[in-house]
Design a protein around this nucleic acid. Structure first.
Lengths: 157, 157
DNA sequence: AATTCGTGGATGACAAGTATCCGCGTTAGT
DNA sequence: ACTAACGCGGATACTTGTCATCCACGAATT
């Protein structure tokens, strides 16, 4: 089980965007994080399709959050990149073989499936409990209160 | 994010094994679930390496659980197949770019990483809370009290 | 008109999951 | 002894998904 590396990029970008004063182009975000510009562009497009960011085209264009940071959860970002399909896919093997489960029994989802779904639910709840604003506050806590001032300054360059 | 399909097979096999009276060969387990024998063999070997099942070679050989079903959690099985690596891998992009996080700050793990780790922790706790015996009880509940009698009967064929 | 920017499609490299087959050693029954 | 059933490990493909790049296009600013 592996998460796309784009998730890390997207979350970090959202934290930066939550501190931006104007549209931030892909170029800037990629440069800031030291990552591939062209590939990051793809992920930002996914955030855009998911409605987490708005894009302004043309010169002085770029990306902006559609909502304040405290209204965007980490789960929102993860699902924008990873999609909403469950990690566990039940193939209903209980219906196979010499002693298949009856159609009546199969009206309820498979017990194994239920357990896996509950676990993923717990995972999502945990991610839903944290917002981009929480992460930004954590950065301030870890790296000092002037951190985002410097970021904004560099962004304006 | 996707779980290996082998997880589903492995969990179902453990439930069957928890009801077995003697060693069950791969052939039987594959036939019972209507799945590939040769590929299932690989997953059973993983369970064996993880110490969840013991194998007896030679004729009338097969697999047995090393512990009773109530001492094997779903998490044990999932980790035996999927490994113990976290789904989220932090690449420390905060150290990149024009405003890298200082080495002092980086002594603590990245805030994004902490959130993702917590979520995976919640996921694991949820899977750890359910045992193979619980799943077996669920099958009995769903499919009727004689279900495993029929399974044992077929297994003895 | 030229530059900067987002968008979508096409493409390719690479890793991982899926699946099969074979030779080997082991064990029980004949 | 011989054979049949079995687990084990390695080798080998096939498929899928991730990662990454490039390009042509339209939009907006200077």
């Amino acid at each position: 089980m592996k998460l796309s590396g784009g998730v890390e990029w997207a979350v970090h970008c959202c934290v930066v965007l939550s501190q931006a004063e104007g549209p931030v182009p892909t170029q800037r975000l990629a440069e800031f994080h030291g990552i591939s510009r062209t590939y990051l562009a793809k992920h930002l497009q996914q955030l855009s399709r998911a409605g987490l960011v708005t894009s302004t085209e043309g010169r002085v264009g770029g990306y902006l959050l559609t909502r304040p940071g405290d209204e965007i959860t980490v789960l929102d970002v993860v699902q924008a990149i990873e999609g909403r399909e469950p990690a566990f896919r039940c193939t209903e093997i209980r219906q196979n073989g010499p002693l298949p489960a009856s159609p009546q029994v199969c009206q309820r989802p498979c017990g194994v499936n239920r357990v896996m779904q509950l676990a993923e639910q717990a995972w999502r709840e945990s991610l839903r409990a944290v917002t981009i604003a929480d992460l930004a506050a954590g950065v301030l806590q870890d790296a000092g209160p002037q951190t985002f001032d410097r970021v904004r300054e560099w962004l304006a360059t």
